[in-house]
Structure formats: structure tokens, C-alpha cells
């Protein structure tokens, strides 16, 4: 095996020997591995001889809810929670969660590490029309990178996918996190090996290395330039997707007026007219779910959706 890589210290990391505890805030969505990351970090800090306090909230995690974990370590730690504006590192496994916790990041010196993965929460999908805009956070990678000096936005999921295991995305982020804290790489790896399932140790260590390499090779200036180039393209495509809607085509001469489509339409946008033939009353409500098409025994309804997605 290779010899231990000399740990690289991020330029603005405060020295660990000061009495003030060092704060790491890890946020994400249920199932991403927030708790696993905080366990690894807390164990590592303990092994390095620090006092550690960790607290987490994972209430609705199994339903895709938000999860956060505070890890504080230092000579003496009194409170287990990080006060607002005092997190030295904010590690976000999901983009919107990272934005939500941004006020907790220490101004100027704080390091922000985020996965660019987007998990759109249900409350951001109020407009259920296909192709409609969601209420997802508007902040782009560019705006964050311009505002926060020490910010790293990486596609951890993509890196993990290349290694063959999507679940290792959190270990990729651990690798990126390791560059912001002054601990030896071997210590990180030995703790990770303790926490991951034995059959996945190898791939998780590879993922750790990949994340670490990515963070070490990160060049802020060139990254910003790249984002500006791709941004204009991306905006055009979203405008196109929002412009098309699904359309319900009704063959009137085949409809026998059995009413099943009207009763089963989840958006209540179909009605029976005075001739007892189905009619589209509120086309803007239609989400293109195809319930009416599937349940029409007379094949009188055809739903045309802009992007056909077969089941």
C-alpha cells in the first residue's frame, strides 16, 4: 500500500489546540448516510483524544425527511448543539438542505461542502402539472461559490456511481471533509472500515480516496468559469420543459358515459356533460397521470403527455 499522504490543511482552518470547540454540522435527507458520517467523525475525534459531543435529529428520516447532526469536538465541549453562525464546516448531502442550514456556517472562515444532488421535497411540488416549476431552492452553485469563499460543490453521487456503488456517496463526501480537518488519512480510513459493512470496505475506501482527491484538486477559479459556461444552456432547457402540458383527447362517439373516469380522476378535472359524455372541464389541473385512460373500458380517452414515460 502507499505511504500515508501528508494531511493538507485547509487555509482557514483554526488550529485544533485552541479551547474553543471545533464544530461540524452535517445535514441531508433520510437514507443518505448523515448519521454514518457523524458517527465516523465522532469516533475519529475520540480516538484522537478530543472530547466529543454529538446530537442529531432524524425524526421523519424514513419518509425522506430532513436529517441533521451536530458534531462538536475540542479540549472541553459543554453544549452538544452548534449555535447559529458557528459551524466551522457545513457538510450538506443534499443541495436544498445545505441552503437551509447556511445561516449556521461561520462567516468568512467557515467551509461549505455540498453534494449537488437534488431531492425535491413534496412540499416543493405544489403545482403538480407535468413540467411545472417546483418550489425548490433557487440558489445555484455559482451564487453560493461567489458568496462563500471556502465552498466545495461536488457530484458525490456521480463519483460513487462511477465506482459502482451509489450508496458510497456519503463516503465520497467524507473524503472531501477530511481535507478540511487536520487528521491523518490512515486514521480516517481505519474508522471508516469499522463502520461500513465488511463486504463494502474496499469500495468505501476507494470512494474516500476519490472524494479526497477531488477536494485536493479543486480549483475555485476554473470551476466558477465552467459553471458560467454551462449555466446559460441549462436555463434554456428549463424554460422549454415548463411550456408543455399534457392534453386529454376524448373520442366522443365511443364514450358510453359510465362515469368511471370522472369518479377516479385524482385532480377532479373531468365532468359529465348534459349528453352524458365525458368532458375536460379544467385542463390546467390535469397532471397527465393517465388514470382515466387506463380505466376507460371503451378506449375513448387518450392522454398525450409531453414526455412519454412508460411504466
Amino acid at each position: 500500500m502507499t505511504t500515508a499522504v501528508k494531511p493538507v490543511k485547509a487555509p482557514n482552518t483554526p488550529p485544533l489546540t485552541i479551547p474553543r470547540p471545533h464544530n461540524v454540522l452535517i445535514v441531508g435527507v433520510g437514507g443518505q448516510g448523515v448519521i454514518m458520517i457523524s458517527k465516523v467523525l465522532a469516533t475519529l475525534c475520540q480516538e484522537q483524544g478530543f472530547e466529543v459531543k454529538q446530537s442529531e435529529v432524524h425524526g421523519m428520516a424514513k419518509r425522506g425527511g430532513a436529517v441533521f447532526s451536530h458534531v462538536r469536538f475540542g479540549e472541553i465541549v459543554h453544549s452538544p448543539t452548534i449555535p447559529e453562525g458557528e459551524a466551522d464546516v457545513l457538510l450538506a448531502l443534499e443541495w436544498a438542505e445545505g441552503m437551509r442550514w447556511m445561516p449556521y456556517l461561520r462567516q468568512q472562515s467557515g467551509t461549505f461542502i455540498a453534494d449537488t444532488q437534488r431531492i425535491v421535497p413534496p412540499f416543493a411540488c405544489r403545482n403538480r402539472t407535468r413540467g411545472a416549476r417546483t418550489g425548490y431552492v433557487g440558489e445555484t452553485i455559482q451564487t453560493v461559490m461567489e458568496q462563500v469563499e471556502n465552498s466545495f460543490a461536488l457530484d458525490a453521487m456521480g463519483i460513487a456511481k462511477q465506482l459502482g456503488v451509489v450508496k458510497a456517496a456519503n463516503t465520497v463526501l467524507l473524503g472531501a471533509l477530511s481535507t478540511a480537518l487536520d487528521f491523518p488519512t490512515e486514521a480516517w480510513k481505519s474508522v471508516i472500515s469499522k463502520f461500513v459493512p465488511p463486504q463494502t470496505t474496499k469500495v468505501n475506501l476507494l470512494a474516500f480516496d476519490a472524494g479526497r482527491e477531488w477536494a485536493l484538486g479543486f480549483d475555485r477559479e476554473s470551476e466558477l468559469r465552467n459553471i458560467k459556461d454551462t449555466r446559460s444552456l441549462h436555463q434554456e432547457s428549463t424554460v422549454e420543459a415548463g411550456a408543455d402540458y399534457s392534453r386529454v383527447e376524448i373520442t366522443e362517439e365511443w364514450c358510453k358515459g359510465c362515469d368511471i373516469c370522472v369518479k377516479f380522476c385524482p385532480e377532479r378535472c373531468l365532468i359529465m356533460n348534459e349528453k352524458l359524455i365525458v368532458e375536460m372541464a379544467e385542463p390546467e389541473l390535469c397532471t397527465g397521470c393517465r388514470m382515466c385512460e387506463w380505466l376507460c373500458p371503451d378506449f375513448a380517452i387518450t392522454v398525450h403527455t409531453p414526455n412519454h414515460v412508460p411504466l
Binding site: 362517439e253 365511443w254 358510453k256 359510465c258 362515469d259 373500458p297 371503451d298 378506449f299
Partner: peptide
């Protein structure tokens, strides 16, 4: 497209309104 698979000249079919057989055929 269901119309590629049915004999359209025979439609609408003879089954009663709301008969589940049409859904089974689909």
C-alpha cells in the same frame, strides 16, 4: 397506442357502460 391493436371499424364495442372487460382488454 391502443388503436394500433384494435379493429377500429367495430368500435364502440358491444359491452355495457362501465364493464370491466374493456379495461382487461387494454
Amino acid at each position: 397506442e391502443i388503436r394500433d391493436y384494435i379493429r377500429q371499424q367495430l368500435f364502440p364495442h358491444f359491452m355495457c357502460p362501465g364493464c370491466g372487460h374493456g379495461i382487461a382488454l387494454r
